[in-house]
Nucleic acid binder design. Structure first.
Length: 285
DNA sequence: AAAACAGGCAACCGCTGGCCC
DNA sequence: TGGGCCAGCGGTTGCCTGTTT
């Protein structure tokens, strides 16, 4: 089979030999330097003016997913994982929408996380990753562990002056954090994924039903994260919430007893060495 | 040590919708 | 109004790397 990475359309080959496949350091540098000097603009123009033999789409993808300065890379924190689970339960595969609430994370990264980690665990349980049963499993077993991890981090890693985020540009929360915090957790306009459904109706959060209520807040100015910790006025994030554990062991309003009990499934898979939350969610200090 | 396998992720593909002429 | 161009999105592919046999 011909390698599609080396094929190109007739249109592309007609004018200039367009490059495809992995980006080189030189290409990255060209693109970065151009955008930093001239802004993004039209991507086809960017590609041309930057001297790249790439199409605009490729440049856009490379910039947004990899080169953009506020892009955060590395393992997703427990907070981010929990938020992804929560938002996906609301919106489904609306990756770009979900990504809006995880500053610095790209839709591609979230999509990959979902497909490689979450769906893998769903397969382990023999359930559809978009099914109610799966949500029950998440709510009953995974979310508590993520929250537990968050609590551990909160007690050991909260050090506002010691930001270990591996992002070189993480000296302060990126701008989008501000919009995230207001949109996500203080906004009552219907943008809040924890308060509204896609149809605009109101409902409680699937995995974090009471996050918006007072008792679950720790210091709202403290942002706890496995790899970073901010303390800043008017800056709230999911990571700042430490809900009471026992509420997350509640099975919710599911009817899982009817055909496939998630708890039983959980017991089954605990025989599997894969079912170790630290491994499953790739918690790395 | 090497081959086979599996997982993770960067990049591409194709579709859709918005904008402009 | 319709066609062309473009950006953005979700789905998919295939390469790379680590692990297992």
């Amino acid at each position: 089979m011909e390698n599609p990475m080396k094929t190109k359309s007739f249109e592309e080959s007609e004018e200039v030999e367009l490059r495809r496949g992995p980006w080189t350091l030189e290409e990255d540098t060209l693109l970065t330097n151009y955008i930093l000097q001239n802004g993004e603009g039209r991507w086809n123009l960017v590609a041309k003016c930057a001297g790249l033999k790439r199409n605009g789409k490729s440049c856009r993808l490379r910039w947004l997913n990899y080169l953009k300065p506020d892009t955060r890379r590395g393992n997703l924190t427990p907070q981010e994982q929990l938020l992804i689970l929560e938002l996906h339960s609301k919106w489904g595969n609306r990756w770009s929408k979900i990504a809006q609430y995880l500053p610095g994370r790209t839709d591609n990264e979230i999509k990959n996380y979902w497909r490689t980690r979450v769906q893998k665990q769903a397969r382990q349980l023999n359930i559809e990753s978009n099914s109610d049963k799966f949500f029950d499993a998440v709510r009953s077993f995974w979310a508590p562990r993520l929250i537990e991890k968050m609590e551990q981090n909160s007690s050991t890693n909260c050090c506002p002056q010691n930001n270990n985020n591996n992002n070189n540009n993480s000296l302060l929360p990126p701008q989008s954090y501000d919009s995230m915090s207001t949109q996500t957790y203080t906004d009552t306009s219907g943008q809040n994924p924890g308060l509204s459904n896609m149809d605009g109706s109101s409902s409680s959060s699937t995995f974090m039903p009471d996050l918006m209520t007072g008792p679950h807040f720790i210091d709202p100015n403290t942002i706890i994260d496995g790899s970073m910790c901010y303390q800043e006025g008017n800056y709230q994030e999911l990571g700042g919430y430490i809900p009471r554990m026992e509420e997350y062991f509640y099975m919710g309003n599911s009817d899982i007893g009817t055909e496939y009990h998630v708890a039983e499934a959980y017991e089954d898979v605990t025989q599997d060495p894969m079912w170790n939350m630290d491994n499953i969610w790739q918690f790395r200090e």
